[in-house]
Amino acid sequence: MTEREQSFLEYVQSGGQVEATDWMPDDYRAKLIKFIEMHGNSELMGVLPEREWILRAPTLQRKLALTAKVQDEVGHSQLIYRVVEDLGKPREQCLDDLISGKAKFHNVFHYPTKTWGDVGVIAWLVDAAAIISQKALLKCSYAPYARIMKKICWEESFHILHGRDVVLTLMNGTDAQRELVQEAVDRWWGPLMQFHGNPIAKDEDPMYVWRIKSQGNEEARQQFLDGYVPQIWELGLTVPDADLRKNDDGVWEYTEPDWDELRSVVTGHGPKSQDRLDLRRKARESSAWVRQVVLAEAA
């Protein structure tokens, strides 16, 4: 590491923030692009599981709320890809890498949404897990990313409300409706526990070293468990992990998540990975002419 790089590292580690036009080490830029691009991909792919239920929403209010939630996520991907673009990787290239399978997206978006119960559980628990990671990014050393995270976190908070409302309505409903929620929690628990990644030590995580992330993976998972397991239990729902409990020292103990599953899923071998990428690919191909016509003048 050169002296300049070293002093940059010390600068970000002491809480310093960097703007798009500032000098930065190549390694930092590359890590930023990789991390932020994956976030953008996840927002965009995260649209697809819920989108299927926009057409099936059972009341006008739910229809509107779910459309608005999916709309927010598309908006987030736009904001995030803009940040990546200003770092030097154009959006079109990000999208090409996404549909070719070269770039990754979050594990939870590789799974099917089977029932209306999933719509509630995703908006409540998956978004809760995501907001924990995103809140930690408010302190990201790259200022343009930290800034858009404010808007993103603000919008995500509505999603959790929407999710809780769907879940509470179902839990107050018929036995079959309650079963929808329990069955969805059972299916989503594994992916949720894998969501924050393996418990790599903070100081060995390059994303933390550069202060792109401001917390470690296990810290995030503990925060999730602490915030949400009591909320799950109080509704009379169960969590499919017999070993899950909070120790006297406040730390949650749980069965080791399936890290092989995580690795396999995020490399494109999840139950819905290929279907979703196919849908993205087709949508992109069939509307390529629109982008050509629309962006012609801009070029």
Binding site: V47, L48, R51, V74, S77, Q78, R91, R291, V294
Partner: peptide, 9 residues
């Protein structure tokens, strides 16, 4: 039906 798959974000 276009939500999520429109030609431009």
């Amino acid at each position: 039906e276009w939500t999520g798959i429109a030609p431009l974000l």
